[in-house]
Computed example of a mutant assay.
Amino acid sequence: MHRLEKREDQATDLLMAHLSNSEDFVRKHNTSTWSLFKNWPLMSSIILFCITCFDDMAYLEIFPLWAESNKKYGGLGFSTEDVGNVLLVTGSGVLLYQTFVYPCIIKVLGLINTSCVAAILSMMLLLTYPPMANLSKPWLYCAMNIASLLKNNCVATIVTCSFILQNNSVPQDQRATANGIATTLMSFSKTFAPAGAGIMFSWAQKHQHAFFIPGDQILFFLLAMVVFVEFICTFKPFLAMTKESSSGSCH
């Protein structure tokens, strides 16, 4: 009887110790999770990531609609097949770029310089989209494929750089949580992009003959301004970097 009571006491002690350890673990986990929101190098790279994804989603919403619009509405007059071919070339090019070209660029320029260059190039490309409607068909297809390929490569570059910066900003045991936070916030940003892009495209179609700037030019100008915000976000004091990710700064 005495042995049985002793075993029960030991089991109770083990259970209490286990519960205590579990509570300590939960408390430490919650504390470490909240500390991520105070980690400015992490949060600044997440903000850059979210803005880039917002711009990309808005662009992907606008581009097919604009390309298939009649030229009298500022579009390109493409068929659905034409747009599909452009996206096919773009997707194949991004795959090759990410596999072979991007690693070489990162080694030469570093993460931040690469993001800066990609943002500048992306802005310039967006501003060239409206004048493309004046090109004849053979040149139009060629120019559109090149512009679309470069634009999507720029987005892939900034997104990949921000991913690397995020993971360099936290210890290895916090990377899963940090990536979860980044993905959640990115999903929120992508939620609003299609609605905003649709509203702006509808407005642009109704203001093609505006006195100041035609609607399609305003449309791509606004997209370029979002990319300009991305570019600003790569500079200090906004983008704070840890020692691991400080190489390649454009400051």
Rank of each mutant, 00 (worst) to 15 (best):
A210I: 00
M57Q: 13
T33E: 02
M57L: 09
M132R: 11
S162M: 10
W40V: 12
A58S: 14
L4M: 14
G248N: 10
L165D: 02
L60Q: 15
K28W: 05
L219H: 12
S247Y: 08
G77L: 07
A119E: 06
D173T: 07
E230W: 00
N153R: 02
M225S: 14
F63N: 13
Q217E: 10
C233F: 11
F188C: 13
S136N: 07
L14A: 15
I105R: 08
S246E: 12
E23M: 13
I112R: 11
S69P: 12
A143L: 02
S45G: 12
P64F: 00
S32T: 05
V229D: 04
E23S: 12
S35W: 01
G74R: 11
F100E: 03
F228E: 01
P171W: 00
A119T: 12
V170M: 05
N85S: 13
V117I: 15
H18I: 11
M16A: 14
V170T: 12
C233R: 03
P194F: 00
P130N: 07
E68F: 02
L185G: 04
T234G: 06
L121T: 15
L109W: 03
V159E: 05
E81Y: 04
N152K: 11
P130V: 03
T52E: 04
T160Y: 01
E244Q: 04
T234R: 02
N145L: 06
K6P: 11
K190N: 12
L36D: 05
L222Q: 10
S187K: 05
L185E: 02
R27M: 09
D216P: 15
Y102T: 02
S162F: 02
L19G: 04
L96P: 06
D9S: 13
K6L: 14
N179H: 03
H209E: 10
L87R: 08
K72M: 13
F163R: 08
L87E: 08
M225L: 15
N21W: 02
T160I: 06
M241N: 12
R3L: 15
M241Q: 12
S245H: 02
L65F: 06
A210D: 14
L76K: 06
N153Y: 00
F192K: 08
